[in-house]
Amino acid sequence: MSINQDLQDTPITKRQGLIVYLDSASNQYKLRHYGDIVYFSKKMCYCVLYTDQKEIDQVMQKLTSLDFVKKVEKSGEENLDLSSSHIEQQITEMAQAAEDKLLKEQEKLEHLS
């Protein structure tokens, strides 16, 4: 379950993340007018920008029209399943895969000796 779904009935302003790919690192400062920059990668030349969910389509159009912006994507955080049952299932699957790998390695060592 996403955080935005949990806060659906509250008066808190809903926010949406955007990933904005830039031509050069110096242009990141120009994005402050469109939302809150929470992360910037100088090496990969992209920003994670949060803006109001109601205005997301307008902001995406404005950003796309800027000459220094290569590409704009919506964040996929809405698609993340953060429920405890899903997380427990993932941990169980990872533990089982690790045990299987260890058993195979032990069988190889026993077979060699």
Rank of each mutant, 00 (worst) to 15 (best):
I12T: 08
E110L: 13
K101F: 04
I87M: 07
V20F: 02
L82C: 14
Q96D: 14
K108T: 15
L82Q: 14
E88C: 06
A98Y: 12
S75C: 03
S2D: 14
A25H: 12
K62D: 13
R32S: 10
D6E: 09
R15C: 00
H33N: 09
Q16W: 01
L66M: 12
E93M: 09
P11E: 08
D81P: 04
Q90E: 12
E93T: 04
E73P: 03
M60H: 03
S85V: 14
S83W: 05
L63K: 05
S84G: 04
P11N: 10
N27D: 14
S24Q: 14
S83H: 07
Q16I: 08
K104P: 00
V72M: 05
C47S: 14
L80C: 04
L80E: 12
K62Y: 11
D81S: 00
E88A: 11
Y29C: 13
K101Y: 06
S26T: 11
K70T: 08
H86S: 12
S65T: 05
Q8F: 02
L66E: 10
K62P: 09
I3D: 12
F68I: 01
Q8H: 07
Q96T: 13
P11A: 09
E99D: 15
S2L: 02
A25Q: 13
T10G: 00
Q61I: 11
V20P: 06
S65H: 04
M94Y: 11
Q61W: 06
T13Y: 05
D6R: 08
K30Q: 15
L31D: 06
T10V: 03
Q89W: 00
L18W: 05
D23H: 13
L82E: 13
K101R: 12
E73T: 12
T51I: 03
L49E: 04
Y39G: 07
S41A: 00
D23W: 07
M94L: 13
L7M: 01
H86Q: 10
F68L: 03
I91W: 06
V72T: 06
E78G: 09
M1E: 13
V69G: 02
D67I: 01
S83K: 08
I19R: 10
